[in-house]
Design a protein around this nucleic acid. Structure first.
Lengths: 331, 331
DNA sequence: TTGTAGGCGTTATCAC
DNA sequence: GTGATAACGCCTACAA
């Protein structure tokens, strides 16, 4: 910067002012400065700047599984907004592991990140509260945490699950089962509630024997489906509360030689990139994943600008996409 | 740091030495220092440290598509190694867009990143060379660039394509087509070469009419397949040189009511997460994607330790996974 | 409007 | 082995 200043015949302060564009600089000087900068190929040192400003231009996005398409699509939404706003995004993979998650939260604190977007891997809220106390803007996505007042972006899990179940009821399936996720996860709970609400609204009985709590992973879906088939009369339709488990459940059915939807119909939650390709194509409750990312990013920007705002909560709508796995061919 | 120093009755320099553990400090002093640190909840400021050290602990990983499972799995491999070595990974999405890519390369330079792992989105090598001249360690993955001497991790595309094609030949398919990627991409070229080599080795003629150059995207695969079916006698088997195009090609066949593998058999390159689920399950040449990431990360670590080493090139093996899409049922 | 000067939190180089 | 002290490159009162 001093080199630039010397070459432009000004002080370093003026160079800084030109760089930041905040205060007014004489146009002719500014011109000389920019000229000098290009001639010297000057690039300002972000670290020094951040040190001085006591802030970084980094966002951390902490997700529980990089390989889940739901999250990657979301990340992309975040990234697009972040980069146009001048922020970089650090992707952190908590792997549904609370310890790893806490590590990343600590790191975010230590690195004085400009903001954090997190899909929590545990029900503990202290890590996040600590971050907020440290005046680091936080947006929680996908999952809701009890007793946490913080900006949040969710999808309408209740309505999504209800529409999926309604759809199965309309198709006149009689024994509609549900495979949901861990009890502490708001998404799992809400989707289960949507399922039971729809059944009750249709005058059906909710049969506890037809409900399974799994782990939101492929294997869990597989095992839950096997368990449903093993114990008592099998279901003739299943609502599976997340994408990976839907894949697992479908695999289980195929392995056991059960026809989809002939023996067991299937509706999944979360979109599956190749839902059209699998056989039969899978009916799913699609989430606006990219939009979730964008919305969270915008919320974070707002939180950075206004640190003491009231926490917002945004709920985006889902869309039931009916494909072959839930529709019996006409007889 | 000065607070810690005061509390421990030492100088800031000693605190720094304790923190870095390099030089020797009297055990009793060190004890006092660590005690003071925990009492005060001290955390060292990474920015100041980096400013002083003229280096960051950030790696950039520049990939062309976050939503392609190939890359996310790789990212995971990189991340695992990076975090145990004390580095954080910034994920950059170049979107197969050379301009975006150059942007990220510039940013990596400006931020004095500790290292860069890149899967190039263009054949231009200046950006990468410039980075290396700036003494920023670089590892190129997946794709090879002409005239670039740099650490590289690849998979054995030639052998992978050859084994896929051999497999089709063994199944006695007669008109085996190939859909490959952009000409400038080493992966596309090598996979095409593997295909032609296998044909020639089997005494077959290579028919240019059966080769298509597409864009490594789903849509490109779809269009290429349509074009193959439209012009002249259709192929009875197709080797598709990447995962997304395989999906597109399969969709095209299904839409046109052609049976897989009855009318047209299919083998894809790159694994597809749900290859088992799609109907028919897809035969693929699986790449050790996670391992590619790990290997690249280890190479980067080596490059950081030894800036002036000879560039390495590591080629990992692929594995043909035969499933239903390439095997005719016995008559 | 412009320049001067001090400091952001570390680490490295000296003396001691 | 330990402690002053000077950078690292930038921003921003404050003074001019």
């Amino acid at each position: 910067m001093y080199d630039v200043a010397r070459r432009a015949g000004v002080s370093a302060a003026t160079v800084s002012r030109v760089l930041n564009g905040r205060s007014t600089v004489d146009p002719s000087l500014a011109e000389r400065v920019t000229a000098a900068m290009t001639e010297l190929g000057y690039r300002r040192n972000t670290m020094a700047r951040n040190l001085r400003l006591r802030a970084s231009n980094l966002w951390a996005i902490i997700i529980s599984d990089v390989e889940n398409p739901f999250f990657t699509s979301m990340v992309r939404g975040v990234e697009d907004v972040a980069s146009t706003a001048g922020y970089s995004v650090v992707l952190c993979n908590s792997d549904e592991n609370p310890a790893k998650e806490q590590n990343y939260l600590d790191a975010a604190m230590a690195e004085k990140m400009a903001g954090v977007i997190i899909s929590p891997s545990s029900a503990r809220v202290d890590g996040i509260n600590q971050l907020r106390k440290g005046r680091c803007p936080v947006v929680v996505v996908d999952r809701e945490l009890d007793g946490l007042r913080v900006d949040t972006v969710l999808v309408d899990n209740l309505e999504g699950a209800r529409s999926a179940t309604d759809h199965l009821i309309e198709q006149d399936f009689q024994r509609i089962a549900c495979i949901t996720g861990p009890r502490w996860l708001s998404t799992a709970a809400q989707r289960l509630t949507g399922y039971t609400q729809a059944l009750k609204a249709a005058g059906r009985v909710v049969d506890e024997q037809l409900i399974r709590y799994a782990d939101f992973r492929k294997r869990g879906g597989h095992e839950a489906m096997a368990s449903l088939l093993d114990s008592g009369p099998p279901p003739d339709a299943v609502f599976v509360a997340n994408n990976l488990m839907t894949v697992g459940a479908a695999e289980c059915l195929i392995q056991q030689g059960r026809a989809i939807p002939g023996d067991v119909a299937l509706v999944g939650f979360d979109s599956i990139p190749w839902a059209d390709l699998v056989f039969p194509s899978l009916t799913t409750v699609a989430q606006p994943t990219y939009e979730v990312g964008r919305a969270a990013a915008h919320m974070l920007l707002a939180g950075i600008r206004e640190p003491d705002h009231e926490p917002q909560k945004l709920v985006l709508a889902t869309e039931l996409q009916v494909r072959a796995s839930s529709v019996l061919p006409r007889r």
